[in-house]
């Protein structure tokens, strides 16, 4: 029986970190550490001496890990980039999920695969959540702009809210643009005229 793998998850957001840690725990018996502070990255990694480091591809501190992976210190063991040494399908899946993984040299594919499978699945979910959040934010922003545009039209032309919206929609159709874009143009123009 080999000792359980030590995994470091680099993730500043506690909620996301918990999601990933939970998924890893379900996948097997691992010794998992979360590093949230970029500044402490090198020291934390030296301290835990992990077999696997998982990091979000969107995290700019990836290039810091890259340096750690190259240098012999502070890591005692050489760390290879996961995409470097695994079968192409798995590394492509990881990158598509937004996951970067560093794996200590010499670990067999069989031992690493469950970790990566679990992480890939969870990263997909995290990414989906992030996209949804961004979309929701954008929709809210757009609604605010449309409301402001409607208000401008109501005041300037003495029409009802319904008529103002209809006017925006008709203009958008005529100009082959989105309602939000037309509203945005109107708000910008009116700001300029103030």
């Amino acid at each position: 029986m080999t000792a359980s793998l030590t995994i470091v998850v680099v993730e500043p957001d506690p909620a996301r970190a918990r999601l990933i840690v939970d998924a890893l725990r379900e996948a097997g018996d691992f010794d998992i550490h979360v590093v949230a502070e970029r500044a402490a990255l090198a020291r934390q990694i030296a301290l835990h001496n992990p077999d696997v480091v998982l990091v979000d591809v969107a995290d700019p501190s990836r290039d810091i890990l890259e340096e750690l992976a190259l240098a012999s210190a502070p890591l005692d063991r050489p760390v290879a980039l996961f995409v470097d040494r695994s079968d192409e399908g798995l590394s492509t899946a990881a990158i598509e999920a937004g996951l970067s993984a560093y794996v200590v040299d010499g670990l067999t594919q069989a031992r690493v695969k469950p970790v990566l499978d679990a992480a890939i699945a969870r990263f997909h979910m995290v990414q989906r959540m992030r996209t949804e959040l961004a979309e929701t934010k954008r929709a809210l922003e757009e609604r605010k702009v449309i409301d402001r545009a409607k208000g401008l039209l109501i005041r300037a032309r003495g029409i009802t809210e319904e008529e103002a919206y209809a006017l925006l929609r008709r203009t958008a159709m005529d100009k082959n643009r989105r309602i939000a874009d037309v509203a945005e143009a109107l708000v910008t123009a009116s700001d300029l005229l103030k």
Partner: peptide
Amino acid sequence: PSWSALRDA
């Protein structure tokens, strides 16, 4: 976000 991510992409 990083050179290593771009290299991998």
